[in-house]
């Protein structure tokens, strides 16, 4: 009985996760500039993959510990890689979407490139 309850909770969690993976990809596809895409991509896919992993851990007996470790690893590394991509592409000269206002980061990047 308890297996059945846990299993179906897991199925629902995997559904939520798969749906958010889809939303993340849709955001990356639709949004107008790189930084907005990065936002949608990071947040939605992080929740998606974490929820999928925990759901799978609940469905299959004995997988929960490893899947929790995988979920924690993904939670810690995903924001770091998106942060690195955002910073690198701003410095590589990617212009933000024209409605971006204010742009306080531009001053800092300009100051640093003047110093070089």
């Amino acid at each position: 009985m308890i297996d059945l309850i846990l299993g179906w909770t897991g199925v629902v969690l995997v559904f939520i996760g798969v749906f958010f993976l889809f939303l993340g990809a849709l955001g990356v596809f639709r949004l107008p500039d790189l930084f907005n895409r990065l936002q949608a991509g990071t947040k939605a896919t992080t929740l998606g993959v974490v929820s999928t992993t925990i759901g799978v851990g609940l469905i299959a007996k004995g997988w929960l510990i490893f899947s929790l470790a995988l979920a924690i690893f993904l939670l810690m590394t995903n924001p770091i890689s998106s942060h690195a991509l955002g910073r690198a592409s701003y410095r590589a000269g990617v212009k933000p979407y024209k409605g971006t206002n204010p742009d306080l980061y531009a001053e800092k990047v300009k100051k640093e490139s003047d110093q070089k």
Binding site: L23, G27, L31, N36, K43, G99, T100, N101, P102
Partner: peptide
């Protein structure tokens, strides 16, 4: 994020603070 992405008009007002 879901509200923004699923909305056909995409109500965004981005900026760096």
């Amino acid at each position: 994020v879901a509200g923004i992405v699923l909305n056909p008009k995409m109500p965004i007002k981005p900026g760096f603070v």
